[in-house]
Design a protein around this nucleic acid. Structure first.
Length: 468
RNA sequence: GGCCGGGUGGCCGAGUGGCUUAGGCAAGGGCCUGCAAAGCCCUGUACGCGGGUUCGAUUCCCGCCCCGGCCUCCA
């Protein structure tokens, strides 16, 4: 089995063929740490985390790079209007992103390069591009001469002449003179009061796109396996990354993967973004639901699909994930100490689904098939085969970071044992009443527990309780 | 205006030139239960509109309508 992934450059499914067998290098464009993360950012991280985990599960050694853009126009602007230095804002927000990623169990990247830590690589790369005749300095800025970049527009399907005709394509905020409106800044001369670093062209800071080219090549080399990011980055960001990297003589990424965006129901259905003022922060959501439910809500669809965020989204996820959790909990209790018996077939379907462009929805169908089969075995009391099914289901869930046992254990303040003991007293009282066929009294006990949020379930092997 | 992607049963959400036509939620029926809860079984016959290709299209082609992304910072 080989993993096939959609490649933006060819608009087709292509097998992932690593440069070095057994090792995959992935570069993904991380956040600009300007504001708190919203659920769209997390959707991105979760989609790529499934890729990361599936590569690991498939036996690859993975170098997963996710950069942090910690200096840019907006950070400088916001910090200037607030009461803290730009680097303090960036650090504070980077921490918020890290917390959000951790909360939903995204594996940490192998390395997290930052723009402010990569200035020498960036200036060296720009010099190389200038030396090769594809960039020029002007008024302290340096621009890439887009017309000298062979194949410009191929990744995103843009026609340079058509772009030229579109006034919008002209980048803003430059101080030097461009030779062509399509040219974009590799280096921006410092304006009054802005952070800057020394360079051969005077004090300044990197343009938006060059950082990623420099950091990717720093870690992964001049040619690497996969570059990923949101669909909104295809143009101009990724197109420009390709252009400047090729102008530097680097083959760059062999495969391009882009995930769909989160849109907002109601308000016109447009993309969730900070600048449109329609974003829901991760913090807000995690006050409403458990992180595993948010992970399910953002990760259950296909990564290339658009995900519409609506008031129903979290409720739907709670219900769907709840079914899985219920099975894992019930089966775990029932099979405690039982050796797994005959193995089930779900894993093969699951693996085939993920190998086919990370088909998470179909992979989840395999999980649910396992859950249904497992519930039937639970009813039948076939514990050895139930144990095998449970192991299978949990193995699948682990790849999606949705295993209720391993990945989302109860916290340190867990009072399960205490409640267990207390509920036992009530259950005994109810059992006495039931033995006398005093249904009224028995139901009263159950109703009182329910009012406190504890649901009792009678099973062939005894009474179990759960929080409603 | 240019370049992409999409419109699937009550809802979410896969997928395919015909075959048992995912999965979840919700709904109805049944089983289990003292009653519940949880679970299992069964049921619904959907693919925006109009043409075309085809023995046959939801799936391919053309046109139209609608929605989203990019062309400006953006996951």
């Amino acid at each position: 089995m080989t993993l096939r992934l959609h490649d933006t450059a060819t608009r087709a499914l292509r097998p992932l063929e690593p440069l070095q067998p057994g090792r995959v290098g992935v570069y993904t464009c991380g956040p600009t740490v300007q504001a708190r993360p919203h659920v769209g950012h997390l959707r991105s991280a979760i989609a790529l985390d499934v890729l990361h985990r599936w590569l690991l599960a498939s036996g690859y050694e993975v170098v997963f790079v996710r950069n942090v853009t910690d200096v840019d126009d907006k950070i400088i602007h916001d910090a200037a209007h607030g009461d803290e230095p730009w680097w303090a804002l960036a650090t504070r927000m980077e921490r918020a992103f890290t917390q959000a990623y951790d909360a939903v169990q995204c594996l940490p990247p192998t390395v997290t390069p930052r723009v402010t830590g990569s200035i020498p690589s960036i200036t060296a790369l720009i010099e190389r591009i200038i030396d090769r005749g594809h960039a020029y300095a002007s008024g302290g800025d340096v621009y890439l001469a887009v017309r000298t970049a062979e194949g410009y527009g191929a990744l995103s399907g843009q026609d340079p002449d058509a772009l030229r005709a579109s006034e919008k394509a002209v980048a803003h905020g430059h101080t030097g003179e461009k030779r062509d409106p399509l040219d974009f800044a590799l280096w921006k001369a410092a304006k009054e009061g802005e952070p800057s670093w020394p360079s051969p062209w005077g004090p300044g800071r990197p343009g938006w796109h060059i950082e990623c080219s420099a950091m990717a090549v720093d870690v992964l080399g001049e040619e690497f396996d996969l570059h990923a990011g949101g669909l909104d980055l295809v143009f101009p960001h990724h197109e420009n990354e390709v252009a400047q990297s090729r102008c530097a003589g680097h083959p760059f990424a062999r495969h391009w993967l882009h995930h769909g965006l989160v849109t907002v129901a109601g308000g016109g259905g447009e993309k969730m973004s900070k600048s449109l003022g329609n974003s829901t922060t991760v913090e807000d959501v995690l006050r409403q639901v458990r992180p595993q439910v948010l992970r399910y809500a953002l990760g259950a669809g296909h990564y290339r699909s658009q995900l519409e965020w609506s008031p129903a989204t979290l409720g739907d996820a709670e219900a769907a994930y709840g079914r899985i959790e219920t099975f894992v909990r019930n089966a775990t209790e029932a099979t405690r100490g039982v050796q797994p018996g005959e193995s089930q077939a779900s894993w093969a379907d699951f693996a085939a689904a993920l190998d086919d462009d990370l088909g998470v929805p179909q992979a989840l169908a395999a999980v649910h098939t396992g859950v249904r089969a497992g519930n039937a075995l639970l009813d039948a009391g076939d514990l050895p085969r139930l144990a095998a099914t449970l192991a299978d289901v949990r193995r699948m869930l682990a790849v999606l970071a949705l295993d209720p046992v391993e990945q989302w254990p109860a916290g340190a303040s867990d009072l399960t044992a205490v409640v267990d003991a207390l509920v036992a007293i009530a259950v005994e009282a109810r059992a006495d009443a039931r033995a006398r066929k005093d249904w009224e009294r028995a139901d009263a006990v159950r109703d009182r527990l329910k009012a406190s949020g504890i649901v009792l379930e009678d099973t062939p092997t005894g009474v179990r309780w759960r929080l409603s």
